[in-house]
Design a protein around this nucleic acid. Structure first.
Lengths: 187, 187
DNA sequence: CTTGACACTTACCTATTAGTAAGTTACTAT
DNA sequence: ATAGTAACTTACTAATAGGTAAGTGTCAAG
């Protein structure tokens, strides 16, 4: 059952979004799946192995949404909006971005997972940068801005907004997305 | 020795910035201070108590920097810059904002600490909002923007930048601060 | 000189954590 | 029928976590 492995990884990602890498345990996973802890260890011998599987899955997800957006016939503006929404709006109010969660726990991560989350972050930034550059080419965004700087600012503000939302409530994300739009629209 | 209590709280904040609330332990603190674990428990019986002391200290720090900025003779623009730099630039590259760290660990926090970190976040936002409003009044920032939305966007992007900096390196923060400046300057 | 408080240490307890070894069940290919 | 493999369970270990009780040294006030 290759399905079980996917089940475990998906649940691990959800738990990481809720509690972080350090705080989630094999016990959490086994109880929610209705099996024993040892059975999780059968699929992922060490927590580190599960960590690598988690980051690999995050890489895959990113590549998938990159593909689906590249093949989309929408305008550059729509693509950008779509990607941001895809990253942010699929999470519940108590959840944050799994990338942010692993960045926060960075110092406690096994070094292999540290490297992997670096990869994920760089890919995410590269995708965002491409979308920004495309929007600039279509004259939707100001071309005098540096695409790299705009990209990392968009990512930072959305991820930060998810953190504040957890504590200050649901409007935070809407407010930040709204203001970001205003910033980007200005000539 | 009331000094020892302050020592413990300050170290706890540093550890929270590095590893988060869940991952830091009484053992970490006692070893770094060269005393036993039980001695830390003497000053703060439960981890929850230390957590409350930590958030209280964060509130105090915020209020202090609020005072020092309010009494500053600088322009609204300078004040805003000063406050942002004060929040971000005093941290080392491996550290993130302690508020962000506690927001990330929110679900694992004792409920009293949850409430406290809500207080801290709201105060932080209020301060930022005041600074933005002041800058708008002095026509440094666009008055057609909503002060609240601008404030939460600034905070979110700076906090998010600190997360990415940890993984992507030192430029990230500079890039985001730079781009934020460009966004805010536009007419 | 003694009392009492403060700031500890020693020595423990319990719960939880990641992780392992050995056995069990069920399905599958020969 | 049997051998083998995949997916488990039972039962354990060692380390670490938060937390506690009882005792120790030091110092200052009476």
């Amino acid at each position: 059952m290759e399905n079980r492995k996917k089940q475990i990884v998906d649940l691990a990602i959800k738990l990481i979004q809720q509690k972080g890498y350090v705080a989630f345990s094999y016990d959490d996973i086994s109880k929610q799946l209705g099996v024993t802890k040892a059975s999780i260890h059968y699929h992922f011998e060490k927590k580190e192995d599960l960590g690598v599987a988690v980051t690999d899955r995050m890489l895959l997800r990113l590549q998938e949404s990159l593909m689906s957006i590249k093949n989309s016939p929408a305008s550059a503006e729509e693509k950008l909006k779509q990607f941001i929404q895809q990253q942010a709006q699929r999470f519940e109010c108590t959840e944050i971005c799994p990338i942010s969660s692993l960045q926060t726990d960075y110092e406690s991560l096994p070094s292999i997972v540290q490297e992997k989350i670096g990869e994920v972050s760089r890919l995410e930034l590269r995708v965002m940068k491409e979308l920004v550059a495309e929007a600039q080419a279509e004259n939707i965004l100001n071309s005098s801005d540096d695409a790299h700087q705009v990209a990392i600012t968009i990512l930072s503000s959305v991820k930060g907004a998810l953190l504040y939302r957890r504590v200050l409530g649901d409007d935070v994300l809407a407010d930040v997305l709204n203001q970001l739009n205003r910033f980007l629209k200005k000539p």
